[in-house]
């Protein structure tokens, strides 16, 4: 899967404008590639959780993309995957420690999902498809763009699930006596909300094209 996209990405132009258009919209990790489903289903019960998870992932993406791009000619092909994973894991640990220190409450809420960023295939995907084939600046921008696209998707899904599941926006209840819709709070709700969001986006995108 990532190989096919990798080919497409290599051929694409590397102007910042094109990188951001791809990362945020045309090749959005969630909406176009359907990668990174684990955090998507796990933490998007509220907008705030989605934003924080997206921000943590973006930091890792920017760091790992930049470093992998820097060392791309030094790492032999045969061991590139373990080398990339080690680099990604280092950045994830740094972000995990930083959140524990300076965003303690959110660190507690997101819990295990922060260390699990290591296995978010979207990050490995960008390392393999983009950072290993491009210079530092485009790779950095690519990490930022893909991260923003991922954050956008997580926040959007969190918004929909929080609204339908708990009747709240950013933690503020809209109705005093809202009957909690458990379906939207639990993982199946993430699938359902995602399906409707995807359908809406595809329809919008088709019109655009």
């Amino acid at each position: 899967m990532s190989h096919a996209h990798g080919v497409a990405a290599t051929a694409a132009d590397t102007s910042p404008r094109a990188i951001f258009a791809r990362g945020i919209w045309r090749e959005n990790t969630i909406f176009a590639h359907l990668l990174g489903m684990c955090p998507l289903l796990g933490v998007t019960t509220t907008t705030k959780n989605g934003l924080w998870m997206g921000a943590a992932t973006t930091l890792v993406l920017v760091g790992s993309n930049a470093v992998i791009s820097l060392v791309r000619r030094l790492i032999p092909r045969e061991v590139r995957i373990p080398a990339y994973i080690t680099i990604i894991a280092a950045f994830v640990t740094v972000v995990d420690l930083a959140m524990d220190a300076w965003a303690h409450e959110m660190h507690k809420i997101l819990g295990l999902f922060i260390p699990l960023i290591v296995v978010n295939c979207a990050i490995m995907g960008r390392a393999e498809a983009f950072a290993s084939k491009h210079g530092v600046v485009p790779s950095l921008l690519d990490g930022l763009a893909v991260g923003l696209g991922f954050t956008l998707a997580l926040a959007l899904l969190g918004f929909v699930r929080e609204l339908l599941g708990e009747g709240a926006v950013f933690g503020h209840a809209l109705w005093a006596e809202y009957p909690k819709a458990l379906g939207f709070i639990l993982p199946p709700g993430a699938f359902l909300a995602l399906a409707f969001l995807l359908a809406a986006i595809r329809r919008f995108a088709n019109k655009e094209a």
């Binding site: 740094v94 524990d100 220190a101």
Partner: peptide, 24 residues
């Protein structure tokens, strides 16, 4: 190559863990 990558990544994590320990 892998040994160097591992050592550098490990060192980065160790330094950062020390630096954040008081704040945590």
């Amino acid at each position: 190559t892998l040994a160097i990558v591992g050592a550098v990544a490990g060192a980065l994590v160790a330094v950062f863990a020390r630096a954040t320990a008081p704040a945590i």
